[in-house]
Design a protein around this nucleic acid. Structure first.
Length: 830
RNA sequence: GGGUCUGUGGUCUAGUGGUUAUGACACCGCCCUUACACGGCGUUGAUCGAGGGUUCAAAUCCCUCCAGACCCA
């Protein structure tokens, strides 16, 4: 018996790791394979890879998503495109600031700014390294040489230049508006960064007195804000209070520097059945207060300062933190006999997503990206973008429907991109740097080539060099950008905006935005907004929105639930004889999960095959191994079996003397490959992988191989050509899903790695290709053929005959007459 | 409270009006047949979340309800 060229007896994680290490060790080889070569002459396909935020371990669900992005990258290369699969790391932001604060037990603002920034950069660098290692381990074919960091001068330049561009064209403005503010972290935040937490709060009923002596009761959870009350409102149809409308009512608490009374008015937003049905409207207790103030044209009061303390208008409570002031106010009201009732109740209160601090709404002069005017145009652009799956477009449309205010982009933090502006001494002019320059106005002056603009009209007044003497003492902007200002340029940056204009010309709109559905309202929306405001174009050709990785019971994985699964434990499961075990907290009890071997190839195969894009997927390592490791074993053994037969010199030329069963399997294979090619073109990973799996573990080994075994042992050249041709092309088509696996087999057998194939395999036998009469005829016989084989196997079993023993009395159906010879030989029919 | 999505054998999954509802894993039974026992073959197992409606015909379309996920107020 000839010995197989594939030495290893079976697919294993140790083999996988050996292949993977060899695959990535030589940077030059690696770069030849996966580096972006914009001048290759091929159609460009730029992927706007989500730059991961480094924070210690990588979530297994995220790794699953990234591996599917890699499947798309590789499948597009297979289809002949020049793919740019960039590797970026998102390093700006409040998370790393928190980490440094936690590690050193000191708040950011107690540090020197430059010192703190250095500490952030050092800390995040260690996380960055760990992340890149995992990315390589799971086989992401990124262009790591061109790694970009969002906190690098190169990236921040793009953010700053785009800001200046948008300021000049009027899409960005500066204004004094009510803003959502996190007093603990001392920064403004956007609507999209607010979440709600349920907390116990005291709802207090307070007695107010009208000028005419009438007493009414008002319920509130924010008594400390009485000093900012602008109006007391009742519902216009609430007959209980009709007689009071228009009267003046005394504030029940002392205030300083403002009127001690307000008017009673009507407003339709008042809920008559809540408390007494009377509402005090303060600047600003919540978003509704903001709306009422705006509608009634009231002048807001500044009740809370940037440190979260009450201002002077709060009289005796000035200088107190909000919570202390609230308690003090309740005590005061009780002493004065104005407290009617107090109830503890659960209330959903808005908190900041990052710090979980209750947020306040306060008036601040901030920078805004105007967005309400752009919605219709963005919707038009959306018509040109293909969504995968189409239904997930709804997440975006829903969010857009809810947009009513502009996007505040300035933040009072440090480890972010600086707002690139200096103000003249009188505050009327601003100085902005030239395009393509990274500046830090909090610690340096403007470059000589900067421009001077009018702060309100945006009119260009001259160059900084010419006007320097008349500007007075410059003040550098200390504020920074919301990190989404950086992230929402990612498609522009990777497509070459500013840095490679000639590439950008061909690469934009960016071919693909792959992302999770949880950041549709932030990353996706802001990116589309930016592309619209800057270039009046859709940002992408395709948007691919995947579901979330959930625990085995369908719940979100989180540290607090204790149901997380670490990515490395899955990828390394089975390496060096180690097994994997996970303790995961279920809804009822903690469950122990075990697996012997998984690795990156099995993990990728599972994600590709088990879940449609857009669906949330349950991650259970036990199931991944049970359902998919066997598939790899099977495919490996098919290749190993093939590898013991001589490989024809010329696999590309059909020898032309194929037997009918060879033509039949090639007809089947052509149909499979057609499905696969079309699915890769449509970014449909699921269908492509399913088709390959069905063919490779089903009809090929069970029926074709069993049929031609004896021919192969007899050294039949046609059978060997057919089998090798199929194995080779199968590996090419399958390489996007399992790159290391297919690389090893194809390179060992055919001296050319499947990962290097840059055109989808051609039809092996044109005479039976999809659409030919002969091919259709053979494909129509497939069911009958398989049924006949199955019937024969079960008959032998019923009769207690082993499969290699002869059997008599079985009749081959008329339609299969051309298979008579091979079927007789296969089943030893007599 | 509202919106969007999802709900198919024990588990996962295909299937957007038309034979007997697809496949995988698990279970059970048989088989070490010159690639593979980490394998092969076969059997069992689903009133398609519940109820109602439209239709000659519904897992598929419509309505109501239930459950879950995500988002919003």
């Amino acid at each position: 018996m000839p010995s197989p060229v594939l030495n290893d007896k079976r697919w294993s994680i140790d083999l996988e790791k050996r292949i993977q290490e060899a695959h990535t060790v030589d940077q030059q080889v690696y770069a030849r394979r996966y580096a972006f070569k914009p001048d290759s002459g091929k159609e460009l396909f730029v992927i706007d890879t989500p730059p991961p935020y480094p924070s210690g371990t990588w979530h297994i669900g995220a790794v699953a998503q990234y591996s599917m992005i890699d499947v798309i990258a590789r499948s597009q290369r297979l289809l002949g495109k020049e793919v740019f699969f960039p590797w970026g790391v998102d390093r700006n932001g409040i998370n790393i600031e928190f980490t440094v604060e936690k590690n050193t037990k000191r708040k950011m603002k107690t540090y020197d700014r430059a010192e703190f920034i250095d500490m952030c950069r050092e800390t995040i660098e260690t996380f960055t390294q760990a992340m890149r290692k995992t990315a390589k381990r799971v086989g992401l074919s990124c262009d790591y040489e061109r790694e970009y960091l969002t906190d690098s001068p190169e990236y921040r330049t793009v953010t700053q230049s785009i800001f200046i561009e948008l300021f000049k064209n009027g899409a960005i403005i500066e204004d004094l508006r009510p803003n959502i503010y996190d007093p603990v972290e001392g920064t403004t935040i956007a609507d999209a960064e607010v979440e709600r937490l349920s907390r116990k709060t005291r709802l207090v009923d307070i007695k107010w007195t009208c000028d005419d002596g009438t007493e009414i009761v008002i319920s509130t959870t924010r008594p400390e804000l009485i000093c900012a009350c602008g109006v007391v409102a009742v519902h216009p149809e609430d007959e209980r209070y009709t007689h009071l409308v228009g009267k003046t009512i005394q504030l029940p608490m002392p205030v300083d520097g403002r009127s001690t009374s307000v008017q009673i008015m009507t407003h339709s937003s008042v809920k008559s059945d809540f408390g007494s049905g009377v509402l005090m409207v303060c600047s600003f207790g919540d978003q509704n207060d903001v709306a009422v103030f705006r509608e009634l044209g009231l002048t807001p009061f500044q009740a809370i300062d940037l440190d979260g303390k009450l201002t002077d208008i709060a009289g005796p409570f000035a200088g107190m933190k909000v919570i202390d002031a609230r308690n003090a106010a309740i005590d005061y009201l009780e002493e004065q006999g104005k407290l009617v009732n107090v109830v503890e109740r659960e209330q959903e209160i808005p908190v900041s997503e990052r710090g979980k601090n209750p947020v306040e709404i306060i008036l601040l002069k901030e920078w805004y990206v105007r967005q309400t005017h752009a919605q219709d145009r963005i919707r038009e652009h959306l018509e040109d973008i293909e969504f995968h799956p189409p239904r997930n477009k709804q997440f975006l449309l829903d969010w857009m429907d809810n947009i009513s205010i502009d996007w505040p982009i300035s933040r009072r933090r440090w480890y972010h991109t600086e707002i690139p502006i200096w103000y003249s001494e009188n505050g009327e002019k601003i100085i902005v740097p030239p395009s393509g320059t990274y500046v830090q106005p909090w610690r340096e002056g403007p470059p000589k080539e900067s421009q001077v603009l009018d702060r309100t009209t945006r009119e260009l007044l001259g160059t900084f060099a010419d006007m320097e003497s008349e500007l007075g003492k410059l003040v550098g902007e200390e504020k920074v950008f919301d990190t989404w200002m950086d992230s929402s340029n990612s498609n522009l940056f990777v497509s070459g905006y500013l840095n490679h204009p000639e590439v950008f010309e061909r690469a934009f709109p960016t071919a693909l935005r792959p992302q999770g559905k949880e950041i549709v309202r932030t990353w996706l929306y802001y990116t589309l907004l930016k592309s619209n405001l800057l270039l009046d174009k859709p940002g992408f050709k395709h948007v691919w929105i995947d579901g979330l990785g959930m625990d085995p019971w369908g719940r979100k994985m989180s540290k607090s639930l204790g149901n997380g699964i670490d990515a490395d434990s899955v990828l390394e499961c089975g390496a060096g004889g180690r097994t994997g075990s996970w303790k995961v907290k279920g809804p009822d009890k903690t469950v122990s999960l075990r697996a012997n071997k998984i690795g990156s190839e099995c993990f990728r195969l599972w994600k590709a095959c088990d879940a449609q894009v857009g669906d949330d997927f349950h991650i259970n390592p036990e199931e991944i191994e049970k359902k998919y490791f066997g598939v790899l074993t099977k495919l490996f053994n098919v290749a190993r079996f093939a590898s013991q037969f001589e490989i024809p010199e010329d696999l590309d030329t059909n020898p032309g003397n194929l037997a009918v069963e060879d033509q039949w399997i090639l007809a089947e294979f052509d149909s499979t490959m057609n499905t696969v090619r079309q699915s890769w073109e449509k970014l449909d990973i699921y269908t492509a992988t399913q088709a390959l799996k069905t063919f490779g573990t089903g009809v090929l080994p069970s029926h074709y191989l069993e049929m031609v075994k004896s021919r192969l042992y007899d050294d039949d050249k046609s059978a060997a050509w057919t089998l090798h041709r199929i194995v080779r092309d199968f590996m090419s088509a399958f390489t996007p899903v399992c790159p290391f696996f297919t690389h090893h087999i194809s390179e060992t057998l055919y001296n050319r790695s499947a990962v290097d194939i840059d055109s989808f395999p051609e039809t092996a036998d044109a005479s039976v290709a999809l659409g030919t009469e002969e091919g259709d005829h053979l494909r129509n016989l497939s069911n009958l053929l398989q049924t006949f084989n199955g019937d024969t196997w079960s008959t032998k079993k019923e009769q207690g005959i082993s499969l290699n023993q002869p059997i008599s009395g079985l009749v081959i159906p008329e339609e299969l007459s051309k298979f008579t010879a091979i079927l007789t030989r296969m089943h030893h029919l007599e």
